[in-house]
Design a protein around this nucleic acid. Structure first.
Lengths: 189, 189
DNA sequence: CTGTCCATGTAAGGCGTTACATGATTGT
DNA sequence: ACAATCATGTAACGCCTTACATGGACAG
């Protein structure tokens, strides 16, 4: 379960509350691993049961207790083990490609807007990635070295390049449909 | 729910049994929408309840009845509606990128094999796509026109180009780690 | 005084996976 | 004779989402 390990990853830097973790996810890995609040709290409970984290309860008269989670030694071993273990092959699910696959059922006037819209969404995503990068490129981290910062930015880079490839594909797909040029470009350079 | 609509998509060509559908998925859309058997049977039952398909029971003395599912008129309306309706933004989940993101916790000797392995898997996938394409490039379909065949092959094309982008990214990431060159390439050409 | 942030959780439901269960037919 | 294919399903569980519920602190 990757959520567990992402949480352990964050806690390996510093103790955090469930609320802090939610913000950490939203500020960093949401593009490839969104996490929602209720799931984080439940997963923390599981991690505690498994002995990978310990809970420090900080009482604050009148307000809700703050619960800070610390990674345990077993948790450090576990995150290291997971990080260095190859993952089983994942299967992807892309509903948009189902629409393309069965797109023959639609006339161009219904299909082309769908493709153009997807291109638009993809281009916007590229802009978001650029903005995040611009905001982070000169970051130096208190908790991580240059190499660690580089690795975290690599995840942004791969998001950027794959979205570029998708945008390019969509542009040529639209162009081919418009000109009734039904040729496919795979393999041969 | 995309599985429902993928099933309707297949049934819009010809009536099929649950077993046939499983094969249809495995032979065509499994790279972007794997479906397993038990789920197909449950979803067919739902589609029947909703009136999008009708079941034709074919009795075959001594053997299990064969159940052929036909798309209904309501089903045709529904698949057309769904195909031409933009999907809400999907969020992706890529556990491998969590490993990269927290890769700073690992020394090169643990991290590099992980990246090289991922590159190898990606290159194999490219080979699979090429093979599928080679087997299909001269296909003419009895049930679909040239444009429909083109659209179905477009899904292969996008899989190919995104995997090419990922392979390229992995190669340069490995090279940068090896030379301790921690620069990121986003945006600027 | 209204909204946003801080901070915790519970409940219900949907989609998907894995394992289990059955049994005839066809190919080697 | 044995395995693979044809063909149907059920049960249980896991991960994730959405909605619900609560309430103080702080900023405009």
């Amino acid at each position: 379960m990757s959520l567990k390990h992402a949480i352990l990853g964050f806690l390996s830097f510093t103790p955090l509350s469930g609320y802090d973790l939610k913000k950490a996810f939203d500020n960093s890995v949401r593009h490839f691993w969104p996490a929602n609040q209720s799931q984080i709290y439940r997963t923390l409970a599981q991690l505690e049961e498994e002995g990978f984290v310990t809970k420090e309860v900080i009482e604050r008269e009148e307000r809700l207790d703050l619960k800070l989670y610390h990674i345990s030694e077993a948790g450090r071993v576990e995150i290291h083990r997971w990080l260095s273990t190859p993952l089983p092959e994942q299967d992807s699910r892309e509903p948009f490609l189902i629409q393309v696959y069965f797109g023959g059922r639609l006339p161009d006037e219904d299909l082309l807007p769908l493709l153009r819209r997807e291109l638009h969404v993809t281009e916007e995503r590229l802009g978001v990635y650029e903005a995040i990068y611009a905001a982070n490129r000169h970051r130096t981290s208190a908790i991580a070295d240059e190499r660690a910062v580089f690795l975290s930015l690599l995840t942004l880079e791969v998001g950027y390049t794959t979205n570029q490839a998708i945008a390019q594909w969509l542009r040529t797909a639209v162009a081919r449909l418009e000109t009734h040029d039904y040729t496919i470009h795979i393999g041969e350079q």
